[in-house]
C-alpha cells in the first residue's frame, strides 16, 4: 500500500528553482492497476522516480506498506528497489553486453540468491521469451528488450511494478503485447501496476487514471469516486480507504 502526502520535488539549477512536483497526494492500494497521464514535462517521471524509490522528494511523506520511505538511507532504498518494487523504463536500461538471462539475474545477484539461473529462466518464460534467453540486447527487437526489462522487474517477485512510459518506444502492436502482459500479471498475481503513458488507448487497460499537469495532480478517478461516495471532499488527514477497484 502506497500513501503520498504533500510530496514536492524542486530541482535547483543554479539560482533557478523548478518545482517539478507540488504537494502531491496519492493513495495506491495493493493490486491496483493505475495509469498516470499528463503532458510532457508535467512531472510524471519525477513522480514515478519517487514512487520507485530511485529519487527522494524535497519534502512530503511517502509511506510504503507502513514504512516511511522518505526517511530511509540510500542503502535501505536500494533494498526496497531490490525486493519490493520492479521498475521498467522507457529506454529499457539493459546492460549492453549481457545475454537476456543474465540481465534478469542482475537483481538476484544483489539479493544474494543462489538458484538465479532457474528463476531468471522462469521470469523470461513468464513474459514469453523462453526462446530468447541467450540473446543480447542488440539481437532483440524493442518489444523483446522491454519484455526482458519486465522479466528483470518481475524476477524478485515484487509486489509493485512501476513503469515509466514502458510503451513510449514501441509500435502499436508491441505496445499492446506489453500492456497485455501487465494486465495479465495484475490479474493473475494481484501485482500492483503503476505506469505512465501519453496514449489514451494504453490508459484504457487500466481501471484508474491519475492526471497530472504542471506538477500537480489535477484529476484522480479514485479520489473523484471517493468524493462522490462520501459526504464531502476527502480530507487530507483522513486515512485512505481500501480502493474499490471499480
Amino acid at each position: 500500500m502506497i500513501r503520498l502526502r504533500g510530496i514536492t520535488k524542486i530541482y535547483r539549477t543554479g539560482d533557478v528553482e523548478v518545482p517539478a512536483l507540488v504537494d502531491a497526494r496519492l493513495d495506491i492500494a495493493d493490486g491496483e492497476f493505475l495509469a498516470i497521464m499528463g503532458p510532457s514535462g508535467s512531472g510524471k517521471s519525477t513522480l514515478m522516480n519517487i514512487l520507485g524509490c530511485l529519487d527522494r522528494p524535497t519534502r512530503g511523506t511517502y509511506e510504503l506498506d507502513g514504512q516511511f520511505v522518505h526517511k530511509m538511507s540510500d542503502d535501505q532504498l536500494a533494498m526496497i528497489r531490490n525486493r519490493r518494487i520492479g521498475f521498467v523504463f522507457q529506454s529499457f536500461n539493459l546492460l549492453a553486453r549481457l545475454p537476456a538471462v543474465e540481465q534478469v539475474e542482475l537483481p538476484l545477484i544483489y539479493r544474494g540468491v543462489h538458484n538465479r539461473r532457474k528463476l531468471a529462466m522462469q521470469a523470461l518464460a513468464d513474459v514469453g521469451l523462453a526462446d530468447r534467453t541467450h540473446h543480447k540486447p542488440t539481437q532483440l527487437s524493442g518489444g523483446q528488450q522491454q519484455r526482458v526489462a519486465i522479466a528483470r522487474a518481475l524476477v524478485t517477485r515484487p509486489s509493485i511494478i512501476m513503469a515509466d512510459e514502458p510503451t513510449g518506444m514501441l509500435d502499436t502492436k508491441t505496445s499492446r503485447d506489453v500492456m497485455e502482459t501487465f494486465a495479465r500479471l495484475n490479474a493473475e498475481r494481484n501485482l500492483t501496476v503503476v505506469f505512465v503513458t501519453h496514449e489514451p488507448e494504453v490508459a484504457a487497460y487500466t481501471r484508474r487514471v491519475v492526471h497530472i499537469r504542471d506538477g500537480r495532480i489535477v484529476d484522480d478517478d479514485a479520489a473523484r469516486a471517493e468524493a462522490a461516495g462520501a459526504s464531502g471532499p476527502a480530507s487530507a488527514a483522513a486515512p485512505a480507504p481500501a480502493q474499490a477497484t471499480a
Binding site: F89, N93, Y110
Partner: peptide, 16 residues
C-alpha cells in the same frame, strides 16, 4: 556511469 545507474536501480547498494 549508466551501467552503475542500472545496477543501482535494480538494488545494488553503495557497498556493492
Amino acid at each position: 556511469t549508466r551501467e552503475i545507474g542500472i545496477r543501482k536501480a535494480v538494488g545494488a547498494r553503495r557497498g556493492d
